[in-house]
């Protein structure tokens, strides 16, 4: 499916969607939204590229392999941030009690561990959406190898 209008529009719009997704992730502790909402917006922009151009252009942005690595890494980072609080002397996922620096309320870096956790959560949700899309569009044969499909 080759459509000039759709391709041009998505090429113009995708950077702004991604910027907005990053904004929502980073300001998760100040404004509505957070890791899940921002990650969903960011992941939707990556899927939009794959739909409006082709699967190769989408895979150039985030390949399915790196998406699955990012997905596991996000969950791992979440757990390790929680464990870091234990190492620093608090309970699991403790924030101020474990000694994470809390800035002035209202600033961007004013939430200690929540900021790091939200970043990992956003990466995980975005890559999960990309992986979901590629799993549906490519499918799997009986022996588990990905099936060739032009989409």
């Amino acid at each position: 499916m080759e459509d000039q209008i759709v391709r041009l529009t998505s090429r113009l719009v995708v950077p702004f969607i991604q910027l907005y997704g990053i904004y929502v992730i980073v300001h998760g502790h100040l404004s509505p939204g957070g890791g899940f909402s921002g990650g969903a917006i960011f992941g939707a922009s990556l899927v939009l590229i794959a739909v409006s151009f082709n699967l190769e252009a989408g895979a150039k942005q985030v390949s399915p392999q790196s998406a699955s690595i990012l997905e596991s890494g996000g969950a791992l980072g979440f757990a390790l941030t929680g464990l870091a609080a234990v190492v620093m002397g608090g309970s699991y996922l403790a924030n101020r009690a474990a000694g994470f620096p809390i800035g002035v309320t209202g600033d961007l870096f004013s939430s200690g561990a929540i900021f790091i956790i939200t970043l990992f959560l956003g990466a995980k949700v975005a890559s999960t959406i990309v992986t979901l899309f590629y799993n549906i569009i490519e499918g799997e044969k009986k022996d588990g190898t990905p099936e060739k499909h032009s989409g």
Binding site: V24, P32, A40, I41, G43, A44, V47, L48, F133
Partner: peptide
């Protein structure tokens, strides 16, 4: 509920349609 509205717009309108 702007939080839910954001998720609905991104997932319910965008990703669900594409999937």
């Amino acid at each position: 509920a702007p939080d839910v509205a954001m998720v609905e717009a991104a997932l319910g309108t965008g990703v669900t349609t594409l999937l």
